[in-house]
Amino acid sequence: MSTSHVVRAGAALALAGFVLPSLAATPATLPDTLEQRVAACTACHAVKERGDAFFPRIAGKPAGYLYNQLVNFREGRRHYPMMTYMVDHLPDAYLREIADYFSQQHPPYPPPQAGGASADALARGEALVRNGDPAKKIPACVACHGSALTGVAPAIPGLVGLPSDYINAQFGAWKNKVRRAAAPDCMAEIANRLTPADVAAVSGWLSQQTPDAAARPGAADSIALPLPLNCGSVPAP
């Protein structure tokens, strides 16, 4: 199309009430807010997130836990190339800002997963979550993660609202040393005491629980101290 044709077409559109945008228009300036800057995070961990096997729910997790995980990715204790790339050059202060931001987001939880675990497996899972297995020196999940399994501030995450595939994958990562935490790594110890059937039982039962919409991490004094195992990522009382 020639230049004269373009001009005539533009004039015709203008007469019809259409306004053509200027080709030289100044690009929109994005707001310099933390919400805008963490858009790279919410592209996967959407604020209105449901969570899946790869991108778990991070909204509402205790800030100390989220900060620890960002540091673990940056320092090579956890391995996921996309996350390492995102945080590799970020300073501690900025990681704390990001962790604080997501800890204050509380979108609705997804409905519980429809699982295929047997009644016996679910019973075993609930027993491990609530009571542990003293014979195997496996502490109850509620002893650290709280009676409502919503986590404990400042650094113990909630377990509700996570899909079974994600829970299974994390236990596998601890067993295979792909995921580690600051020493002593209590979750790695627990993972290695659980059989594959135990892991499937725990993840199957957890994924079928219906979280309270108003659930929040408990206060530090909501669980008995000291913890059943020493955990390097949890501050000493």
Rank of each mutant, 00 (worst) to 15 (best):
R50A: 14
T210G: 00
P211F: 08
G172Q: 12
R130P: 01
G161I: 07
D32E: 15
Y101V: 10
H89M: 00
A117H: 10
V152I: 15
I156E: 01
A127K: 14
P196H: 03
A121W: 04
N168L: 13
R124D: 07
I190C: 03
R37L: 08
R78S: 05
Q36V: 13
A119T: 12
D100M: 03
A39S: 14
M83S: 07
A215M: 11
R179A: 10
S103W: 00
L13V: 08
A114I: 14
A127R: 15
W174R: 03
F18C: 10
F18E: 13
C231N: 08
L13C: 12
D88E: 13
C141H: 06
V152R: 01
P184A: 01
A28M: 08
V202T: 05
S207D: 07
V129Y: 03
V71Y: 04
P211C: 09
N230G: 10
P235G: 09
A188G: 12
G232A: 06
A63S: 15
G172P: 03
T150H: 09
Q170W: 02
R216W: 00
E189A: 08
D120N: 05
A148I: 02
V202L: 06
M187C: 00
Y101T: 02
Y166W: 13
Y101A: 10
A93I: 02
V234N: 09
S118A: 04
G64S: 05
L23S: 15
F171T: 03
D133W: 04
R77T: 06
A46Q: 15
P21M: 12
T195K: 06
S4M: 15
A11S: 09
H106K: 11
S207L: 04
A46N: 14
V6S: 11
K175M: 02
C186L: 08
L23E: 12
